[in-house]
Design a protein around this nucleic acid. Structure first.
Lengths: 339, 339
DNA sequence: TTGAAAGCGCTAACAC
DNA sequence: GTGTTAGCGCTTTCAA
């Protein structure tokens, strides 16, 4: 394996000069730089990929950290990874997939000792488990980007779907189809206890747009279980018999909710239109073709890498980057049946 | 950041002792081990994740190397990655996604300088570009596993779908549906010029099984273009007007072939049954529900990691591991129409 | 603008 | 079974 000293000898300069030529951490005369570059090419030297090593250095590796619940990596994480890898390639970086159980200790280790230049952290589902990680990221020196919307983004850099705009988009879609009575089945109640965040922005976008169009609207938090979905569906229909449009902002209950409504005698989309807002993943392309606004994995992954690169270059980046929603019209929404 | 010398001091032992306690590369007395472990806990020392570093050490990182054509990571690679990450987690390893353009130089660098403990190499599509890489792997010290079937697996460790069994399975499926005249539309002609390999094994399995059942069978290589697909379809029908069962062993022409047959007036599956044998990926779960035998990504990824771990532990592993095929019955096969 | 030399944190020979 | 010590390849002082 050809090393930096080989290059130095070949170019007739000191090893440190090669090092600096490589890192750009101090000015090098054009002539020397050229000679060094030539030797590098001649010998085929390649800066050791992804090491941490002795003299802490750029490793050209981005860590994609995914906390997870059960031990099984979420497909959504892979969508981000795909996008991140593609984007990272363009900046001559590789991606280290770091998958860890949720919980402070395991993640602390990663954040502190990974050799990566920078970190992308995708959303841990359990909000409580995520809090310590966030404070870690805030404190820590290494550039990082969070995919998702924490309750308090201060001091962090975040990329996420613009949930407010998503709420608006969903309502506009329903309005366009003639619906006049709509409901939002939202995140579990806990999500609303915190400050700002995806859940709240969604509610605001949804409600404001419904009001603007003079719709009758309702918002119902919903725990992530089929039983809860059934309960919500029943109550909703009892209280709003004229309901024909539903937005589901809770990945776990999309299917259960559809089943619940159908069990209650409504056909989807003939009697009831339904839109899901959810993370990317195979579900997105799966058999059940639900009209949906998906968190745009490609944009999120690419955006995260982009922000990271800018941070690595010392640039200032916005605290929160919101990605515009896109609605994919599939088979669960349709025009309101004329009574 | 707390380092190994801190632990050593705190435990009252030499740094090397801590190192050895960590790596298990030499016996440590129970007492010392306990003290070291206590100090580690007390100080919160964490072995630097995934470094390559000075004194070449276990990095707890597996590199998943994916050569690619266009610069866009193949979804199939992500399927492998998902499986590999899951499996690697079980062995306390992370996965470094290394995506490079095909071609000797770029890959050589990776193989030689990546800090990973071991390598998983997924199939480069261009067989010519892959050859130099293979010889590199053979020579190189680091344990590696190739996902796919090279022409000559000598000296390598490979995991792949058992294409012979897949051919057999496809024919059995068609026979079960009553088909008597079948064809295999195979890989591009170049693939057959080499020695053994996926293409050949498929042909053998297909032909042998067809013969055993007394079917009329034909094998047609097919370049990877829609035009070629149309040409093959036409010729096939001209030469075998009674053809009702087709196995496609060429990812690129599955859809074109279906279209070609339909353009020739055959309905799928009413008049013609078609099975695809292909790599995993979104295509697998996509809108077009083609009956297929897919390379099992999960098994391949997990199997590769498993083999790697055994190699890392000094165990001897078989040169080639063939994964049993599984056929997913979807909408492109059906019973032969009774004339 | 560059070299020489002193580490970086860790591992692996080599002692005892 | 353990401590000593010499590196590993690279970065970063410090001097020039």
């Amino acid at each position: 394996m050809v090393k930096i000293t080989d290059v130095a000898r070949h170019a007739g300069v000191a090893p440190s000069t090669v090092s600096y030529a490589l890192s750009g951490k101090r000015p090098i005369s054009a002539a020397t730089r050229r000679r060094v570059e030539e030797s590098i090419r001649a010998l085929g030297y390649r800066p050791p990929l992804g090491l941490g090593g002795a003299g802490r250095r750029g490793s050209n590796v981005l860590a994609l950290v995914t906390p997870l619940r059960a031990g099984v990596p979420a497909p959504a994480a892979m969508e981000y990874a795909l996008a991140a890898v593609t984007a990272a390639r363009g900046h001559d970086h590789d991606v280290l997939l770091v998958v860890r159980e949720e919980g402070e200790e395991a993640l602390r280790q990663v954040v502190e000792s990974t050799p990566a230049d920078a970190l992308i952290v995708t959303g841990g589902q359990a909000r409580d488990a995520r809090a310590p990680l966030l404070s870690l990221l805030r404190r820590h020196g290494r550039p990082s980007v969070l995919v998702g919307s924490p309750a308090d983004p201060t001091g962090l850099t975040c990329v996420d779907l613009d949930h407010g705009a998503a709420g608006e988009l969903c309502v506009e879609h329903l309005v366009g189809l003639g619906h006049r009575v709509v409901a939002l089945v939202g995140a579990p109640p806990e999500a609303y206890l915190r400050g700002t965040g995806a859940a709240q922005r969604m509610v605001r976008g949804f409600t404001a747009t419904a009001d603007r169009h003079g719709l009758s609207s309702a918002v119902r938090p919903c725990p992530a279980s089929p039983a809860a979905a059934r309960a919500v569906a029943e109550r909703l229909l009892r209280e709003r018999p004229a309901l024909t449009g539903v937005v589901v902002h809770n990945e776990a209950v999309v299917e259960p909710l559809i089943e619940a409504f159908e069990a209650l005698g409504l056909r989807v989309p003939a009697d009831l239109s339904l839109i899901a807002v959810r993370p990317p993943g195979p579900a997105t392309t799966s058999r059940s073709p639900v009209t949906s606004v998906d968190v745009p994995a490609a944009e999120a992954g690419a955006g995260a890498v982009d922000l990271l690169m800018r941070k690595l270059n010392g640039a200032h980046v916005p605290e929160t980057t919101l990605l515009p929603p896109r609605l994919t019209f599939r088979t669960t929404t349709g025009p309101r049946a004329t009574p």
